[in-house]
Amino acid sequence: MRNIIQVSNLSRNYTVAEKRARRYRPGMSSHKTIYAVKNISFEIREGETVGFIGPNGAGKSTTIKMLAGILHPTEGDVEVLGREPYKYRRENAKQIGAIFGQKSQLWWDLPVIDTYTLLKKIYKIPDETYDRNLESYTECLQMKEFLHQPVRQLSLGQRMRAELCAALLHDPALLFLDEPTIGLDIVVKKQIREMIRRINQERNTTILLITHDLRDIEEVCDRIILINHGEIIVDGELQEVRKNFEGFHAVEFLCKMPFREDIELPGVEKWKAGEGSFTAFYRNEEILPAKIIETVLQSYLVEDIRIKEPTIEEIVEKYYRA
Protein backbone atom coordinates (compact mmCIF):
# COMPACT_ATOMS: atom_id res chain seq x y z
CA MET A 1 0.00 0.00 0.00
CA ARG A 2 1.25 3.41 -0.84
CA ASN A 3 1.92 6.15 1.64
CA ILE A 4 -0.69 8.81 1.38
CA ILE A 5 1.05 11.04 3.86
CA GLN A 6 4.77 11.22 4.40
CA VAL A 7 6.23 13.60 6.94
CA SER A 8 9.87 13.83 7.86
CA ASN A 9 11.56 16.15 10.34
CA LEU A 10 8.75 18.62 10.01
CA SER A 11 8.85 21.80 12.09
CA ARG A 12 6.79 24.90 12.19
CA ASN A 13 7.63 27.87 14.33
CA TYR A 14 6.24 31.30 14.97
CA THR A 15 8.12 34.42 15.81
CA VAL A 16 6.41 36.47 18.44
CA ALA A 17 7.43 39.86 19.73
CA GLU A 18 8.08 39.88 23.43
CA LYS A 19 6.53 42.80 25.17
CA ARG A 20 8.84 43.00 28.09
CA ALA A 21 10.39 46.44 27.80
CA ARG A 22 8.67 49.06 29.88
CA ARG A 23 9.66 51.86 27.58
CA TYR A 24 10.41 51.97 23.96
CA ARG A 25 14.01 51.44 23.00
CA PRO A 26 14.71 51.44 19.29
CA GLY A 27 16.38 48.31 18.03
CA MET A 28 15.89 46.55 21.30
CA SER A 29 12.67 44.74 20.49
CA SER A 30 13.20 41.12 21.32
CA HIS A 31 11.66 38.29 19.39
CA LYS A 32 11.07 34.80 20.61
CA THR A 33 10.68 31.73 18.46
CA ILE A 34 7.97 29.31 19.47
CA TYR A 35 7.79 25.84 18.02
CA ALA A 36 4.24 24.76 17.31
CA VAL A 37 5.51 21.57 15.75
CA LYS A 38 9.02 20.31 16.34
CA ASN A 39 10.82 17.84 14.18
CA ILE A 40 8.07 15.28 13.72
CA SER A 41 8.13 12.34 11.33
CA PHE A 42 5.42 9.85 10.48
CA GLU A 43 3.84 8.03 7.58
CA ILE A 44 0.24 7.20 6.90
CA ARG A 45 -0.67 4.50 4.42
CA GLU A 46 -3.70 4.48 2.20
CA GLY A 47 -6.80 3.33 4.05
CA GLU A 48 -5.44 3.85 7.56
CA THR A 49 -7.56 5.37 10.29
CA VAL A 50 -5.35 7.46 12.52
CA GLY A 51 -6.38 9.20 15.70
CA PHE A 52 -4.42 12.34 16.36
CA ILE A 53 -4.55 13.21 20.02
CA GLY A 54 -2.88 15.60 22.37
CA PRO A 55 -3.69 18.38 24.81
CA ASN A 56 -4.84 21.80 23.65
CA GLY A 57 -2.03 23.65 21.93
CA ALA A 58 -0.02 20.49 21.32
CA GLY A 59 0.36 21.20 17.60
CA LYS A 60 -2.34 18.96 16.15
CA SER A 61 -4.16 21.59 14.13
CA THR A 62 -0.90 23.16 12.96
CA THR A 63 0.15 19.76 11.62
CA ILE A 64 -3.15 19.25 9.82
CA LYS A 65 -2.92 22.73 8.33
CA MET A 66 0.52 21.90 6.96
CA LEU A 67 -0.82 18.64 5.53
CA ALA A 68 -3.63 20.59 3.87
CA GLY A 69 -1.20 23.12 2.42
CA ILE A 70 -2.66 26.06 4.34
CA LEU A 71 0.53 26.55 6.32
CA HIS A 72 4.07 26.28 5.02
CA PRO A 73 6.50 24.22 7.05
CA THR A 74 9.43 26.08 8.58
CA GLU A 75 11.68 23.06 8.16
CA GLY A 76 11.41 19.50 6.98
CA ASP A 77 9.52 17.70 4.27
CA VAL A 78 5.91 16.87 3.87
CA GLU A 79 4.24 14.97 1.07
CA VAL A 80 0.51 14.39 0.77
CA LEU A 81 -0.99 12.35 -2.07
CA GLY A 82 2.48 12.33 -3.60
CA ARG A 83 2.86 16.10 -3.71
CA GLU A 84 4.06 18.93 -1.54
CA PRO A 85 0.79 20.27 -0.18
CA TYR A 86 1.80 23.95 0.01
CA LYS A 87 2.79 23.98 -3.65
CA TYR A 88 -0.19 21.99 -4.88
CA ARG A 89 -2.86 23.15 -2.46
CA ARG A 90 -5.63 23.39 -5.03
CA GLU A 91 -4.83 20.10 -6.76
CA ASN A 92 -4.73 18.29 -3.45
CA ALA A 93 -7.90 19.98 -2.26
CA LYS A 94 -9.87 18.08 -4.88
CA GLN A 95 -9.01 14.84 -3.09
CA ILE A 96 -9.28 16.07 0.48
CA GLY A 97 -12.38 16.36 2.59
CA ALA A 98 -12.31 18.20 5.88
CA ILE A 99 -14.32 19.11 8.90
CA PHE A 100 -13.25 21.72 11.36
CA GLY A 101 -15.70 21.17 14.18
CA GLN A 102 -15.53 24.75 15.39
CA LYS A 103 -16.04 26.32 11.96
CA SER A 104 -18.55 25.71 9.25
CA GLN A 105 -18.17 25.20 5.56
CA LEU A 106 -21.90 25.48 4.99
CA TRP A 107 -23.53 28.71 3.82
CA TRP A 108 -25.34 30.10 6.82
CA ASP A 109 -28.41 31.48 5.07
CA LEU A 110 -28.84 28.75 2.51
CA PRO A 111 -30.74 25.51 2.79
CA VAL A 112 -28.34 22.60 3.22
CA ILE A 113 -29.12 21.28 -0.25
CA ASP A 114 -28.05 24.59 -1.85
CA THR A 115 -24.64 24.36 -0.21
CA TYR A 116 -24.29 20.94 -1.78
CA THR A 117 -25.25 22.30 -5.20
CA LEU A 118 -22.48 24.87 -4.84
CA LEU A 119 -19.99 22.24 -3.68
CA LYS A 120 -20.89 20.16 -6.71
CA LYS A 121 -19.93 23.10 -8.86
CA ILE A 122 -16.76 23.92 -6.87
CA TYR A 123 -15.44 20.37 -6.87
CA LYS A 124 -16.78 19.66 -10.36
CA ILE A 125 -18.49 16.50 -9.12
CA PRO A 126 -19.99 14.46 -11.97
CA ASP A 127 -23.80 14.22 -11.86
CA GLU A 128 -23.96 10.49 -11.19
CA THR A 129 -21.37 10.60 -8.39
CA TYR A 130 -23.16 13.52 -6.81
CA ASP A 131 -26.60 11.91 -7.00
CA ARG A 132 -25.35 8.59 -5.68
CA ASN A 133 -23.40 10.11 -2.78
CA LEU A 134 -26.11 12.56 -1.83
CA GLU A 135 -28.74 9.81 -1.74
CA SER A 136 -26.55 7.39 0.18
CA TYR A 137 -25.09 9.79 2.75
CA THR A 138 -28.25 11.72 3.53
CA GLU A 139 -29.98 8.39 4.05
CA CYS A 140 -27.23 7.06 6.28
CA LEU A 141 -26.98 10.24 8.34
CA GLN A 142 -30.78 10.63 8.48
CA MET A 143 -30.68 14.10 7.00
CA LYS A 144 -33.71 14.00 4.75
CA GLU A 145 -36.04 15.95 7.00
CA PHE A 146 -33.76 18.98 7.30
CA LEU A 147 -32.14 18.98 3.87
CA HIS A 148 -34.23 21.95 2.74
CA GLN A 149 -33.88 24.00 5.90
CA PRO A 150 -31.52 26.95 6.12
CA VAL A 151 -28.34 26.07 7.98
CA ARG A 152 -28.90 28.75 10.61
CA GLN A 153 -32.03 26.89 11.77
CA LEU A 154 -30.28 23.58 12.33
CA SER A 155 -29.35 22.11 15.68
CA LEU A 156 -25.66 21.43 16.27
CA GLY A 157 -26.21 17.72 15.71
CA GLN A 158 -27.97 18.35 12.40
CA ARG A 159 -25.32 20.81 11.33
CA MET A 160 -22.43 18.44 12.03
CA ARG A 161 -24.11 15.70 10.04
CA ALA A 162 -24.56 18.17 7.20
CA GLU A 163 -20.86 19.13 7.50
CA LEU A 164 -19.78 15.52 7.29
CA CYS A 165 -21.93 14.91 4.23
CA ALA A 166 -20.48 18.08 2.65
CA ALA A 167 -16.96 16.80 3.23
CA LEU A 168 -17.73 13.49 1.56
CA LEU A 169 -19.67 14.43 -1.58
CA HIS A 170 -16.62 14.65 -3.83
CA ASP A 171 -15.27 11.21 -2.86
CA PRO A 172 -12.13 12.43 -1.11
CA ALA A 173 -9.23 10.00 -0.79
CA LEU A 174 -8.19 11.66 2.42
CA LEU A 175 -10.34 12.96 5.24
CA PHE A 176 -9.18 15.46 7.87
CA LEU A 177 -11.55 15.57 10.79
CA ASP A 178 -10.77 18.17 13.44
CA GLU A 179 -13.11 17.54 16.38
CA PRO A 180 -16.09 16.35 14.37
CA THR A 181 -18.05 15.26 17.44
CA ILE A 182 -17.47 18.25 19.69
CA GLY A 183 -20.55 19.13 21.71
CA LEU A 184 -22.76 16.42 20.22
CA ASP A 185 -25.13 14.06 22.01
CA ILE A 186 -24.44 10.33 22.16
CA VAL A 187 -26.78 9.38 19.34
CA VAL A 188 -25.32 11.84 16.84
CA LYS A 189 -21.79 10.98 17.93
CA LYS A 190 -22.53 7.37 17.18
CA GLN A 191 -24.01 8.21 13.78
CA ILE A 192 -20.96 10.23 12.86
CA ARG A 193 -18.52 7.55 14.01
CA GLU A 194 -20.39 4.88 12.09
CA MET A 195 -20.38 7.00 8.97
CA ILE A 196 -16.63 7.61 9.20
CA ARG A 197 -16.00 3.93 9.76
CA ARG A 198 -18.23 3.01 6.84
CA ILE A 199 -16.52 5.41 4.47
CA ASN A 200 -13.18 3.96 5.46
CA GLN A 201 -14.33 0.40 4.86
CA GLU A 202 -16.29 0.98 1.67
CA ARG A 203 -14.05 3.47 -0.07
CA ASN A 204 -10.73 2.81 1.66
CA THR A 205 -10.64 6.50 2.54
CA THR A 206 -7.69 7.47 4.70
CA ILE A 207 -8.82 9.14 7.90
CA LEU A 208 -6.98 11.52 10.16
CA LEU A 209 -9.08 12.29 13.19
CA ILE A 210 -8.33 14.90 15.82
CA THR A 211 -10.46 14.56 18.89
CA HIS A 212 -10.56 14.94 22.63
CA ASP A 213 -13.27 12.29 22.91
CA LEU A 214 -11.34 9.08 23.21
CA ARG A 215 -14.42 7.01 22.45
CA ASP A 216 -14.12 8.43 18.93
CA ILE A 217 -10.64 7.00 18.75
CA GLU A 218 -11.62 3.62 20.13
CA GLU A 219 -14.49 3.24 17.72
CA VAL A 220 -12.95 4.71 14.61
CA CYS A 221 -9.19 4.43 14.69
CA ASP A 222 -6.76 1.56 14.37
CA ARG A 223 -3.76 3.67 15.14
CA ILE A 224 -2.97 6.65 17.34
CA ILE A 225 -0.42 9.38 17.17
CA LEU A 226 -0.09 11.21 20.44
CA ILE A 227 1.48 14.63 20.26
CA ASN A 228 2.47 16.99 23.04
CA HIS A 229 4.50 20.22 23.02
CA GLY A 230 4.82 19.82 19.26
CA GLU A 231 6.50 16.44 19.46
CA ILE A 232 5.26 12.93 18.83
CA ILE A 233 5.18 10.98 22.08
CA VAL A 234 3.47 7.79 20.92
CA ASP A 235 2.80 6.41 17.47
CA GLY A 236 1.41 2.94 17.08
CA GLU A 237 -1.48 0.55 16.65
CA LEU A 238 -4.09 1.21 19.30
CA GLN A 239 -3.94 -2.43 20.46
CA GLU A 240 -0.16 -2.33 20.77
CA VAL A 241 -0.15 0.93 22.65
CA ARG A 242 -2.68 -0.46 25.05
CA LYS A 243 -0.79 -3.71 25.53
CA ASN A 244 2.58 -2.13 26.06
CA PHE A 245 1.34 0.43 28.50
CA GLU A 246 2.97 -0.10 31.86
CA GLY A 247 0.59 0.55 34.64
CA PHE A 248 -2.87 -0.16 35.67
CA HIS A 249 -3.49 -3.70 34.47
CA ALA A 250 -5.61 -5.43 37.08
CA VAL A 251 -7.70 -8.50 37.82
CA GLU A 252 -10.61 -8.12 40.19
CA PHE A 253 -12.05 -11.12 42.00
CA LEU A 254 -15.60 -11.01 43.37
CA CYS A 255 -15.43 -13.19 46.42
CA LYS A 256 -17.29 -13.44 49.77
CA MET A 257 -14.22 -14.78 51.55
CA PRO A 258 -11.91 -12.17 53.05
CA PHE A 259 -8.53 -11.85 51.38
CA ARG A 260 -5.81 -13.21 53.64
CA GLU A 261 -2.79 -11.59 51.97
CA ASP A 262 -1.38 -15.07 51.43
CA ILE A 263 -0.54 -15.02 47.74
CA GLU A 264 2.85 -13.94 46.47
CA LEU A 265 3.42 -13.92 42.72
CA PRO A 266 6.33 -12.35 40.84
CA GLY A 267 4.96 -9.64 38.58
CA VAL A 268 2.04 -8.76 40.81
CA GLU A 269 2.76 -5.33 42.20
CA LYS A 270 0.20 -5.26 44.97
CA TRP A 271 -3.05 -6.65 46.25
CA LYS A 272 -5.91 -4.51 47.30
CA ALA A 273 -8.74 -5.91 49.37
CA GLY A 274 -12.19 -4.36 49.22
CA GLU A 275 -15.75 -5.06 50.31
CA GLY A 276 -16.66 -8.46 48.77
CA SER A 277 -13.80 -8.30 46.32
CA PHE A 278 -10.05 -8.02 45.96
CA THR A 279 -7.83 -6.90 43.15
CA ALA A 280 -4.40 -7.83 41.87
CA PHE A 281 -2.41 -5.10 40.11
CA TYR A 282 0.20 -6.61 37.85
CA ARG A 283 2.83 -5.81 35.26
CA ASN A 284 1.63 -6.90 31.86
CA GLU A 285 5.05 -7.82 30.58
CA GLU A 286 5.96 -9.99 33.59
CA ILE A 287 2.91 -12.11 34.24
CA LEU A 288 -0.20 -13.24 32.41
CA PRO A 289 -3.58 -12.65 34.05
CA ALA A 290 -4.37 -16.36 33.54
CA LYS A 291 -1.56 -17.25 35.92
CA ILE A 292 -2.94 -14.99 38.62
CA ILE A 293 -6.45 -16.34 38.17
CA GLU A 294 -5.23 -19.91 38.33
CA THR A 295 -3.36 -19.27 41.57
CA VAL A 296 -6.25 -17.48 43.23
CA LEU A 297 -8.79 -20.13 42.25
CA GLN A 298 -6.74 -22.77 44.04
CA SER A 299 -7.42 -21.24 47.46
CA TYR A 300 -10.52 -19.04 47.08
CA LEU A 301 -14.14 -19.57 46.14
CA VAL A 302 -14.60 -16.91 43.49
CA GLU A 303 -17.97 -15.79 42.08
CA ASP A 304 -16.77 -13.62 39.23
CA ILE A 305 -13.63 -12.30 37.63
CA ARG A 306 -13.02 -9.01 35.85
CA ILE A 307 -9.88 -8.21 33.90
CA LYS A 308 -9.26 -4.51 33.77
CA GLU A 309 -7.32 -3.17 30.81
CA PRO A 310 -6.00 0.33 31.21
CA THR A 311 -8.47 2.69 29.58
CA ILE A 312 -7.25 4.91 26.81
CA GLU A 313 -8.00 7.83 29.12
CA GLU A 314 -5.52 6.55 31.67
CA ILE A 315 -2.86 6.07 29.04
CA VAL A 316 -3.39 9.49 27.55
CA GLU A 317 -3.54 11.21 30.89
CA LYS A 318 -0.19 9.76 31.85
CA TYR A 319 1.42 11.03 28.68
CA TYR A 320 -0.21 14.44 28.90
CA ARG A 321 1.19 14.94 32.37
CA ALA A 322 4.65 13.75 31.42
Partner: peptide, 14 residues
Protein backbone atom coordinates in the same frame (compact mmCIF):
# COMPACT_ATOMS: atom_id res chain seq x y z
CA UNK B 1 -9.74 35.96 12.80
CA UNK B 2 -12.59 33.46 12.66
CA UNK B 3 -10.52 30.89 10.77
CA UNK B 4 -13.02 30.85 7.94
CA UNK B 5 -10.15 31.70 5.61
CA UNK B 6 -8.67 28.27 6.34
CA UNK B 7 -11.91 26.66 5.21
CA UNK B 8 -11.72 28.62 1.96
CA UNK B 9 -8.11 27.60 1.46
CA UNK B 10 -9.19 23.97 1.69
CA UNK B 11 -11.22 24.31 -1.47
CA UNK B 12 -9.88 23.69 -4.95
CA UNK B 13 -10.43 27.29 -6.03
CA UNK B 14 -8.37 30.43 -5.90
Amino acid sequence: ISGQLDIMLLRPQG
